[in-house]
């Protein structure tokens, strides 16, 4: 399934929404919403930086969710377009976009097929499939 939201990314989405949007975003009891930490070891961005050069590149991230991974590499990139077909995720990502990344990162609520159809050839240096090829 293309752009499937899987467990960890979904948990990350929820956790980040709690941290960045506020408790009122969820009907869950407060004690259920606290202290979730997703990849605090930074293993995923470390693996990314070991194998891929992001510095100064134009990046397309497909399946960005709420921007869990985006935050951790975007400061290195020249420009990031991060897309996801799940609107609540994109809304959370936009709402929690750090000020210092606003000139670099653009979140779009769109399916990949629609985005690609409107996009010119050879537009990006890097495409990241963020747990979305399944």
């Amino acid at each position: 399934m293309w752009l499937r939201v899987e467990l960890a990314s979904a948990l990350a989405l929820v956790a980040t929404s709690i941290l960045n949007v506020g408790q009122s975003a969820s009907p869950l009891p407060e004690d259920c919403l606290m202290n979730i930490r997703v990849d605090p070891e930074n293993n995923e961005p470390r693996a990314l930086f070991q194998l891929a050069r992001i510095d100064g590149r134009d990046v397309l991230e497909v399946g960005c969710g709420d921007g869990r991974l985006t935050w951790r590499y975007a400061a290195k990139a020249a420009r990031v377009i991060a897309i996801d077909p799940f609107e609540p995720s994109i809304l959370r990502a936009k709402k929690s976009l750090p000020q210092e990344l606003q000139a670099t990162v653009e979140f779009r609520h769109t399916a990949f097929a629609d985005f690609a159809a409107s996009c010119k050839r050879s537009a990006f240096d890097v495409v990241i499939l963020s747990w979305s090829l399944c």
Binding site: A52, A116, S122, D125
Partner: peptide, 10 residues
């Protein structure tokens, strides 16, 4: 198609 010839997919 979207990638530059010297680009890469992760």
């Amino acid at each position: 198609r979207l990638l530059k010839p010297e680009g890469y997919l992760v």
